[in-house]
């Protein structure tokens, strides 16, 4: 039993280390930001997961394993969120992915040329930020509504829209 657990945890730790290295090598060898993010996600999910599994098998059923599970769950969820935010920020900043053209060459391509609807999507963060801000605006509006009930809220919404529409047109 002890030996079996040792073998399993050896395998998990070595495999985890290998996946971790694969991610790090990809981070250096991939041609552009988005493929690099793809490579890093290998080490952030499979590598971390297997390393933690290997440690958990050594620790057995104890508080240490609970802490390990907390670490791996938080890493998995926040890794996805951080990657999403990073890709969105990069696209918004005009980062151009390197794609293969018809001749088979690697070319920096503006995604908006290929997917015209992406221009709308890239403008979308502005509107979604207005939506995210909305709850914090409601208290502001309700404070004002002590003086003029109803009106300020509508005014706030009207003011919130123009930046979003400008973003959609450009």
């Amino acid at each position: 039993m002890e030996a079996a657990l040792d073998i399993l945890s050896w395998a998990a730790l070595v495999l985890g280390g290998i996946f971790y290295l694969i991610g790090a090598v990809g981070l250096n060898r991939m041609p552009d930001l988005f493929t690099r993010m793809h490579a890093v996600s290998v080490s952030d999910t499979l590598g971390v997961g297997l390393l933690i599994l290997g440690m958990g098998l050594q620790a057995g059923a104890s508080l240490i394993t609970v802490k390990l599970v907390i670490i791996v769950l938080v890493l998995w969820t926040t890794g996805a969120v951080a990657s999403h935010a990073l890709a969105r920020a990069a696209l918004h900043d005009g980062e151009k992915p390197v794609l293969i053209d018809n001749a088979g060459n690697l070319v920096e391509t503006d995604c908006v040329e290929i997917f015209p609807e992406l221009a709308v999507r890239l403008a979308a963060p502005l509107t979604s930020e207005v939506v995210e801000e909305a709850p914090s605006e409601v208290p502001l509006g309700s404070e004002e509504s002590l003086e003029e009930p109803g009106e300020p809220d509508r005014e706030a919404n009207r003011d919130a829209r123009p930046p979003a529409e400008n973003g959609g047109e450009t």
Partner: peptide, 16 residues
């Protein structure tokens, strides 16, 4: 076994 894993993570850290 942990030393092996630490070496792998250290190498990945250097590449990063």
């Amino acid at each position: 076994m942990f030393a092996v894993a630490i070496l792998a993570v250290l190498a990945a850290l250097a590449l990063a």
